[in-house]
Design a protein around this nucleic acid. Structure first.
Lengths: 341, 341
DNA sequence: TTGTATGCGTTATCAT
DNA sequence: ATGATAACGCATACAA
């Protein structure tokens, strides 16, 4: 590598290009940046020189001049990257790859670490900051007065004037319920996750509201709350079947729970989807498509959340500041656990 | 008060600090950067002024002057972030948070996209680049002559003079096998993943070598190859038990496969771990701890890979260039699928 | 149409 | 010990 490095030019500047093209730096700059007041022939000479020298403008210098860095910081609290990578992909798409680069910082659910990252991002003069929370509950904003646009994704800020984008969990509950109703299911139970998560309560709201509109209600009149684990799903499936043998559909609070529910139903000799249809939330590929049968699940649309966050930052940079908590529609993905293949 | 408010609005420069402290910018710079040739009293005045004005040095200007950006690019092909987030965490730790920031770019297994990201990273004058492959096979390097240090993680480069860090898959196979042997298991089968992955063949090598040292071999004399799916695990478990009813241990090629194996064994009435011990690779929390019983699995130690990549980049910056493919030890995590709780 | 001069915010090199 | 000044590389008024 040292040999290769030596042979490569250390750093070719606009000055060099101008010299080769026989013009001044100013003209070279105009030619390269596509400004109109330059003669075609001159422009061609400059571009040829730039090409020949393999000139790449020094973004650092451009940044210093323009005052902004063309970068965005993404602070995530998501330990496994399940949210943050798709969100980052969406943001990359919206920003237009290359035009804006993204610093990814892992705060690991630690406020101190978050503050640290925040400071270093601000010192780097990022043009915006995206905060990805680990759970959907509202949480305190990063800092009272930050001079760049901040957008919260997945977990909303609890301050009114902040801007947040979250999945439409209520709508997700609706979609799942409408799907089950359309299949003719009428005895629906909900094995929910942790009741302290707003994701949980929002989904329950969507489910119960949809049922009520059809004059129905959840088996037992309410959801069963537990934890986000397969074992909870297994245990709860047993309780549900014992309490309400007529159950013909179960909505699980997450794909993990659903996996447990499938296991439990199999142990009980209930076939899915014939006897009981099972649907859940998250659409975590690895869990949903590995299940037997594959899981019908609601996708939380992280990429779309990332895109909206990126667009919001663009708009904020242009002076158009939005506020409030905005929801992004989710998408039902139908598989074998509700509709036999 | 009004003074402070005013200056926080727009970026406060070193010039402002100097003015408040009643010194020149040069002196202010020395004072803040801890250089020795400045009188203690003067330094105190400057630091107080900086504090009062909430001064943050403009990193962009520092970068332009120093010629380097204090950033590293991480290009990943890992769609779900399962590798890249832990690797990024390890790199963050090694770099020392804040000192070095990391651009995360998602190349999505697309060479064009990778080249694009690479160019934009180089234009940003990153001090190093980490490439995280999606599968462990060697693959072509990013570009013949890149002027900054490049380190490959997870998937090695196939060019000798490049530097790569990969999990010790052979060692992982060894560890799993030694564990099973230590439990007294002697009839061991291996339900492997996709045979075209070097991760697969490396693990097989570790397993067979360890068995041979004890005068044993895999049931049937070789591994069963398939895909990285639960369904393959289920199907293969059945085949294995039918072909070799004496089987008392199964090594699965991944946690996904292992989940299928557990399912299959349950259907066949074999209890785990009493009749058959099951162990696998990856230690993907969501799969390993959700299983019944929980999975014994080998952790690929992504954080350690990230740390080593970061350290290697530091060393390369200091002129100490390393080459070759280096392995990082994996770690066996014992759970209920091999040892009854 | 082209070139000259200046500024972006910081650090380093010299004088003083 | 302190300060004036020149880089760093680029973009842009403004002059020619």
């Amino acid at each position: 590598m040292s040999e290769a490095t030596r042979s490569t030019k250390r750093g070719v500047r606009l000055k060099d290009v101008a010299q080769v093209a026989g013009v001044s730096v100013a003209t070279a700059s105009k030619a390269i940046n596509g400004r109109q007041d330059v003669r075609p022939a001159t422009r061609r000479r400059v571009l040829e020189a730039a090409e020949r020298l393999d000139f790449t403008p020094n973004v650092l210098a451009q940044n210093l001049h323009s005052g902004s860095s063309g970068t965005v910081g993404l602070i995530t609290h998501d330990l496994e990257g399940r949210f943050s990578i798709p969100i980052l992909m969406g943001a990359e798409d919206a920003f237009g790859a290359g035009k804006m680069s993204i610093f990814l910082c892992d705060a690991r659910e630690d406020e101190i670490r978050q503050a640290h990252h925040l400071n270093s991002l601000l010192a780097r003069r990022v043009d915006g900051i995206i905060i990805v929370g680990s759970r959907t509950d509202p949480h305190p904003p990063v800092r009272p007065e930050v001079e760049v646009p901040v957008v919260y994704v997945y977990a909303p800020s609890d301050r009114e004037q902040d801007l947040s984008f979250v999945p439409d969990n209520v709508g997700a509950g609706r979609q799942v319920t409408e799907h089950l109703l359309s299949l003719g299911r009428r005895h629906i139970a909900h094995i929910a996750g942790d009741a302290t998560y707003t994701a949980t309560t929002d989904r329950v709201r969507g489910i119960t509201a949809t049922l009520e509109e059809t004059g129905l209600e959840l088996l037992g009149g309410k959801a069963s709350y537990g934890s986000w684990s397969e074992s909870w799903g297994r245990a709860a499936a047993r309780s549900v079947v014992e309490a309400w043998p007529q159950v013909d559909a179960i909505v699980a609070g997450s794909d993990q729970i659903a996996r447990g529910v499938l296991d439990g139903l199999r142990d009980l000799g209930r076939s899915v989807p014939q006897d009981v249809a099972v649907a859940s939330f998250d659409n975590w590929q690895i869990l949903a498509t590995g299940a037997r049968p594959q899981l019908t699940s609601v996708d939380m649309n992280f990429k779309a959340l990332g895109r909206r966050a990126a667009r919001a930052i663009f708009e904020a940079i242009d002076g158009h500041h939005a506020q409030g908590v905005h929801t992004e529609p989710c998408q039902l993905v139908v598989r074998g656990s509700t509709v036999a293949e």
